Amino acid sequence: EFILQPIHNLLMGDTKEQRILNHVLQHAEPGNAQSVLEAIDTYCEQKEWAMNVGDKKGKIVDAVIQEHQPSVLLELGAYCGYSAVRMARLLSPGARLITIEINPDCAAITQRMVDFAGV
């Protein structure tokens, strides 16, 4: 995967993360976080594997957030924003999600994903 990915990106003209974002923009409903998550899950199941938590493990994350109702949540590494959208949609009003992503391209994609999801 890591050796072939740059070749695939070159042939496709963009990165996997950008392709995931484009899929979301084309297939998800703006302002609907659940729709965004479903679009990412569908893309990763049908098109390309991606390094995200996914729906199965995501339900565990959901349960922890719902049980503890944090007022501040810190995410280290956002990748394409799946977990940020997943967690933010469950936060109480006034709660904050702080996401740190070292890769500026992934940070920009995450910001667009979060904005599109409306969270």
Results as ranks from 00 to 15, higher is better:
Glu101Asp: 03
Thr110Ala: 05
Ile109Phe: 14
Ala33Glu: 03
Gln5Pro: 00
Arg112Pro: 01
Gly31Val: 11
Val114Glu: 14
Asn22Ile: 01
Ile3Leu: 10
Ala28Pro: 12
Gln34Pro: 15
Ala28Glu: 11
Met12Arg: 10
Val24Met: 04
Asn9Tyr: 00
Asp105Gly: 11
Gln111Lys: 14
His23Asp: 00
His27Gln: 12
Gln18Arg: 00
Gln111Pro: 08
Gly118Ala: 13
Thr15Asn: 13
Thr99Asn: 07
Met12Leu: 09
Ile3Thr: 03
Asn32Asp: 12
Phe2Val: 10
Ala117Pro: 11
Lys16Thr: 07
Leu10Met: 08
Ile20Thr: 00
Thr99Ala: 02
Leu97Gln: 05
Val24Ala: 01
His27Tyr: 13
Leu21Gln: 02
Gln34Leu: 14
Ile109Met: 03
Asn32Thr: 08
His27Arg: 15
Gly118Asp: 09
Leu10Arg: 01
Val24Gly: 03
His27Asn: 09
Thr15Pro: 04
Met113Ile: 05
Arg19Leu: 08
Phe2Ser: 06
Gly13Cys: 10
Met113Lys: 03
Glu101Ala: 11
Glu101Gln: 00
Ala107Pro: 12
Ala108Asp: 11
Leu25Arg: 00
Pro6Thr: 12
Leu4Arg: 06
Phe2Cys: 10
Gly31Arg: 14
Ala117Ser: 09
Ile100Leu: 11
Ala108Gly: 02
Gln111Leu: 05
Ala117Asp: 10
Arg112Trp: 12
Glu1Val: 09
Phe116Leu: 13
Ala117Gly: 09
Leu10Val: 12
Gln111Arg: 08
Ile102Met: 06
Gln5His: 02
Arg19Pro: 14
Gly118Arg: 15
Asp115Glu: 06
Ile7Thr: 04
Cys106Arg: 02
Gln34Arg: 15
Ile7Phe: 01
Leu10Pro: 00
Pro104Arg: 06
His8Gln: 09
Ile3Ser: 14
Ala107Gly: 08
Leu21Arg: 01
Glu17Asp: 08
Pro30Leu: 03
Thr15Ser: 05
Gly31Glu: 12
Leu4Met: 10
Ile102Thr: 08
Gln5Leu: 08
Ile109Thr: 15
Pro6Leu: 12
Ser35Arg: 15
Ile100Val: 11
Ala28Ser: 06
Pro30His: 10
Ile102Leu: 09
Asn9Ser: 03
Pro6Arg: 02
Leu97Val: 15
Glu29Lys: 13
His8Asp: 13
Val24Glu: 05
Ala28Val: 11
Ile102Ser: 11
Asp115Val: 10
Arg112Gln: 05
Lys16Arg: 01
Asp115Tyr: 11
Ile7Val: 02
Ile102Asn: 07
Asn32Tyr: 12
